[in-house]
Design a protein around this nucleic acid. Sequence first.
DNA 1: CTTTTGACTGAGT
DNA 2: AACTCAGCCAAAA
Length: 102
Amino acid sequence: MGFFEKVYNAVRKIPKGRVATYGQIARLAGDPRKARIVGWALHSNPYKGEVPCHRVVNRNGNLSGAFAFEGMDEQKRLLEMEGIVFEKDGSVDLKKYKWDDK
DNA sequence: CTTTTGACTGAGT
DNA sequence: AACTCAGCCAAAA
């Protein structure tokens, strides 16, 4: 299984109403240092619609922003729909919502 | 083939 | 707390 597939698999396992960081996903995929590759993997997003990319945020809890599926508003809306509450600056509270794996 | 770039992170200043 | 630096590695040019 390639790294990309592990990434997709890990992202798929993120519980509803939770978010995970790239580093966390990278760790689950077996290589904590490949956080950037996780970004690439999701950017490629071959499993678009199947992998909940909207639940993956950077270490600050900021959404990937810029582009995404239909648009960043869509991404935010999806998270809010799952119960995630955003801060004024548009970031999520990782203390509350970071996926507690292990 | 080499170089640049980027949905990142952690340590250092 | 904010900013910088360096390491990481795959895809695109």
